[in-house]
Simulated scan of single mutants.
Amino acid sequence: MILPIIAYGDPVLRKETVEVTPDYPNLDKVIENMFETMYEAHGIGLAAPQVNLPIRLFIVDATPFEEDEDLSDEEQKFVSTFKRVFINARIIEESGDEWAFNEGCLSIPDVREDVFRQPDIVMEYQDENFKKHKETFSGIVARIIQHEYDHIEGILFTDKLSPLKKRLIKSKLINISKGKVGIDYKMKFPNAKKKR
């Protein structure tokens, strides 16, 4: 089932998320719906708060990057099969020199900006079967994970922009919250005028 993606300005995107337990109701279905929703919106990652669930869950599918000519052959091979579910994730280390990459977000359509992030992360998380993992991720995969991880921490990529950039996109963000944006996927806007 395709779920509406929550737009910028909704308080759920800023909420403190709670841990997911193995008895969480219909978790398999939630994950399945999130993948279906993400693919419908042509995304590469989606966090539970973006579908109105303030829980520590996000999904990533980096396979669209397998054709990216800027990636090394090794990176292309890695992203070509990288599809994961992250439950109760914690980044325990970030390292390396920050690098800029043009990021966007399904909750903030039509806004793309360069965001600086460190290239390497060490993360602890559980998969969809609640098996524990501790892994190191690098490059574009680390960036996608960091972006989605920020969502479960109540952080948006626009928070990482300079004060000037924030001022320049302020009116766009207000319009997004009101539903004044052209999109081809289902969204819920916090400040849209109700039709009478």
Rank of each mutant, 00 (worst) to 15 (best):
98 E>N: 07
116 F>G: 01
98 E>Y: 02
121 I>H: 06
102 N>A: 02
114 D>C: 08
121 I>W: 00
116 F>A: 11
96 G>S: 00
104 G>D: 02
107 S>Q: 10
110 D>F: 03
116 F>M: 09
108 I>L: 09
109 P>N: 00
124 E>C: 06
98 E>F: 00
102 N>Y: 03
126 Q>L: 11
115 V>G: 03
96 G>I: 00
119 P>W: 09
103 E>C: 03
115 V>I: 15
128 E>D: 14
130 F>E: 12
126 Q>M: 12
126 Q>R: 03
102 N>K: 08
107 S>A: 12
102 N>D: 05
116 F>Y: 15
128 E>H: 10
130 F>V: 11
105 C>S: 14
130 F>K: 09
97 D>Q: 15
124 E>P: 06
110 D>R: 08
126 Q>W: 13
97 D>N: 15
112 R>M: 07
120 D>V: 15
99 W>N: 09
116 F>N: 10
121 I>D: 04
108 I>P: 01
112 R>C: 02
109 P>G: 00
115 V>T: 11
128 E>P: 08
113 E>W: 00
111 V>P: 06
129 N>Y: 14
119 P>N: 12
101 F>G: 01
116 F>K: 09
126 Q>N: 07
124 E>W: 04
114 D>Y: 04
117 R>M: 12
125 Y>H: 04
103 E>W: 01
112 R>P: 03
106 L>T: 12
122 V>I: 14
130 F>P: 08
123 M>H: 11
117 R>F: 14
108 I>S: 03
95 S>N: 01
100 A>G: 13
123 M>E: 12
115 V>A: 05
102 N>V: 04
116 F>V: 06
110 D>Q: 15
116 F>C: 07
100 A>R: 05
122 V>R: 12
119 P>S: 13
130 F>N: 05
103 E>K: 01
107 S>N: 01
129 N>H: 14
115 V>W: 11
109 P>R: 03
106 L>D: 14
100 A>E: 15
121 I>Q: 08
113 E>N: 08
111 V>D: 02
129 N>Q: 13
102 N>C: 00
125 Y>D: 05
124 E>M: 05
123 M>R: 13
112 R>Q: 10
96 G>D: 02
128 E>N: 13
99 W>C: 03
117 R>W: 09
110 D>T: 15
122 V>W: 05
116 F>R: 13
112 R>E: 05
125 Y>M: 00
119 P>L: 11
99 W>Q: 09
106 L>C: 12
131 K>E: 13
116 F>E: 07
129 N>L: 13
101 F>W: 00
106 L>S: 11
111 V>M: 06
104 G>L: 04
130 F>W: 10
103 E>G: 04
130 F>Y: 10
123 M>T: 15
96 G>P: 02
125 Y>T: 06
123 M>Q: 10
109 P>F: 02
130 F>G: 07
122 V>H: 08
128 E>T: 06
121 I>A: 07
123 M>S: 09
131 K>H: 10
131 K>C: 08
127 D>M: 10
